[in-house]
Structures are given as structure tokens and as C-alpha cells.
């Protein structure tokens, strides 16, 4: 019964058991100590792997807003900027325990103020495990080692791929709703978003305008990206996608200067210097900016959440 699938599992469990309240060790973390008192934490080690289950958090289970069915997860931890925001927008009070520290950074996160109400994690498997979540939300590009470790420890991990279209935003919101047992709230969010987007759709027959996405190091998302979808929704053609390029990539400054787009979408520089951002102050770019409108893309451009409506509105305003 005490057999392990892999030696590495044993080591991982040993380390985590020594750190966790189960082992009787007093943990500096206040949340951990509270849980020690009233939570019936059972650790069962099965041959196939390791499963940790939480019998009762003392706070009562979160009820699904659709009523009935499977009980919704009660201790959700998110470790990805985008799942952070999707979860914060939909979770029931008390259901979401922790979001990643990036969610509290106003430069990356459209919900930085809300994130201040949650415990912030640094996306490490160890700290996530110690929060004893019953659902971990991550991105498909989250550290695979951390996700594999959490899965081996028996946690349920759900990953979200980066959203690349407005339809993808709807799908992500609805999926998050299902995972959190908040389908009703998710449907309402999607309806609200669709109404707002319909209002922003440019009238037919307008001449097509070109916008160039231009970020540090000349980074410029091509077709099949969320930024491309935002431009399209506001009636712009993406310069980087004009040559048929899809996905991530760079746009040579020369090509941008030659195309003379009517709008340049770029970002505000971060504090501290970087050679990557120096290109945004290049004299040739300054020359183009004399005739083009410059839009600064904020956090609403980063993630496939209902916040993208704000990004579309930003572009519609310069249409």
C-alpha cells in the first residue's frame, strides 16, 4: 500500500509533508495554522500516485449557481494572469483563494485593484500545494514542471490556452463558469460583452485603415492573435498580418516606415532601462508618428477576458 509510482513522488511528498500542517510542524503562515485547527485533512497515498483530499474547510461548500449537480470547487487557486482575471470576474465570494502576483500589477492586469483582495502567489508548486486547493487554474504555457508536480500530488489542474479570437473569449468565460459552478454569471458576462461589441462594430462601407502593432524589440503579433482580433473588431487591418504572417513575430522597422499606417499601437515603457524598448524611440519611428495616431495598449489587450471590450473601444475611438 505504501508503494510509490516513482521515487520523485516520494521525495516530493516527503518535502511537502514536512512543510504542511499535517506533519504537525507549526507553519509560519497564518492561513495554514487556521486550517490546521478545523480542517480534517486526510492524506491518502495510493499505489497509482498520491491523492490529497480536503474533507471540510469549515467554511461550507460553495454552491453552484445553477443549483444541483456536482458541488463547485471551494478552494480555487489560479497561477496564470489570464485565468486570474477570468476567475476573479466569476468566482463566488470566498471561492477563489489566491491569484498570481502578476494579477496585482496594474501594467499587466486589468483587475489589479481586485487582485489586492486575494492572496498573491508566485506560481510555485510548493506554495500552491500548501494552500490545499481543490482546483488549480493555469495557462497551457505555465511551468510544466510545476503543473506535473501538482497533478502527481493529486490536485485537479485545469489549463487554459491563450485566447486568439473574440469567439475564444466567449468560450473561455463559459468554460471558467462551468469549472467554478458559475454558469449563470458566465452567460450574463458573455451577453454583456456581445452587446458592447455590437455597439462598437464599425458601419459597413468605411474605407479600410491599417494599424501597426509595434512593441519592444519590434514585436508585432500577426494573424490569429488576440491583438489582431481586437484590431479587426474595430475595423482595422493589422500590418504584420498583411504579408500573411500569423502568430508571434517581429515587424522590421523599415517595413513599418514604408507602410505609413494610420494608427500605431504600442506600449508605455516600463521603469528602468532596456535596449528592447529603445527601438520605440527610434528617429524613423518618430517620423511616422507625426502622421499616425498613437494608441497605447494597456492590460485590456493582454488576456482573453471580457475586458477586451475596452481595447476594442480604444481602437474604435481612433477609427
Amino acid at each position: 500500500m505504501w508503494g510509490f509510482a516513482r521515487a520523485s513522488d516520494l521525495i516530493a511528498v516527503a518535502v511537502l509533508a514536512a512543510l504542511s500542517p499535517v506533519g504537525g510542524a507549526a507553519l509560519g503562515d497564518p492561513a495554514g495554522r487556521v486550517a490546521l485547527g478545523d480542517a480534517g485533512l486526510r492524506v491518502s497515498l495510493a499505489d497509482a500516485g498520491v491523492r490529497v483530499s480536503l474533507a471540510d474547510t469549515g467554511g461550507g461548500a460553495v454552491r453552484s449557481d445553477t443549483g444541483g449537480g456536482v458541488p463547485a470547487p471551494a478552494r480555487v487557486v489560479s497561477i496564470n494572469l489570464c485565468t486570474d482575471q477570468l476567475a476573479m470576474g466569476l468566482a463566488a465570494p470566498g471561492q477563489l483563494l489566491s491569484v498570481s502576483w502578476l494579477a496585482a500589477d496594474p501594467r499587466s492586469s486589468a483587475m489589479a485593484a481586485e487582485a489586492g483582495r486575494y492572496r498573491l502567489n508566485r506560481r510555485q508548486a510548493e506554495e500552491v500545494y500548501l494552500m490545499r486547493p481543490d482546483l488549480v487554474l493555469a495557462g497551457t504555457f505555465s511551468d510544466p514542471a510545476a503543473l506535473a508536480l501538482l497533478r502527481r500530488l493529486g490536485l485537479r489542474v485545469e489549463t487554459f490556452a491563450p485566447v486568439t479570437s473574440l469567439r475564444g473569449v466567449r468560450a473561455a468565460v463559459l468554460r471558467m463558469g462551468r469549472l467554478l459552478g458559475r454558469e449563470g454569471a458566465a452567460r450574463a458576462e458573455v451577453e454583456k460583452m456581445d452587446v458592447a461589441l455590437a455597439r462598437l462594430t464599425p458601419p459597413k462601407g468605411l474605407p479600410e485603415k491599417t494599424a501597426a502593432l509595434y512593441y519592444p524589440n519590434g514585436y508585432s503579433p500577426g494573424g490569429g492573435t488576440l491583438a489582431n482580433a481586437i484590431l479587426a473588431a474595430a475595423g482595422f487591418r493589422n500590418l504584420a498580418a498583411r504579408t500573411g504572417r500569423t502568430g508571434a513575430g517581429t515587424l522590421p522597422l523599415e517595413r513599418l516606415v514604408m507602410a505609413a499606417p494610420s494608427v500605431i499601437v504600442t506600449s508605455h515603457p516600463y521603469p528602468g532601462a532596456s535596449r528592447a524598448e529603445a527601438i520605440l524611440r527610434h528617429p524613423a519611428l518618430r517620423e511616422v508618428e507625426k502622421t499616425a495616431k498613437v494608441v497605447y495598449s494597456g492590460p485590456s489587450w493582454v488576456c482573453g477576458t471580457p475586458e477586451v471590450v475596452k481595447a476594442v473601444a480604444q481602437m474604435a475611438a481612433v477609427r
Partner: peptide, 22 residues
């Protein structure tokens, strides 16, 4: 550095590039 792009600059400093200089 507080700048998230600074770490990506390591490649530039170690390998060098003439792209988009002025």
C-alpha cells in the same frame, strides 16, 4: 531590473546586433 524586458536584453549584450540603430 524593474523592467521586464531587461532580462531579454541579455541575448543582445552577449551576441550583439546592429538592427535598428540610429
Amino acid at each position: 531590473s524593474p523592467n521586464p524586458y531587461a532580462a531579454a536584453d541579455i541575448v543582445f549584450w552577449m551576441m550583439g546586433s546592429l538592427a535598428d540603430r540610429s
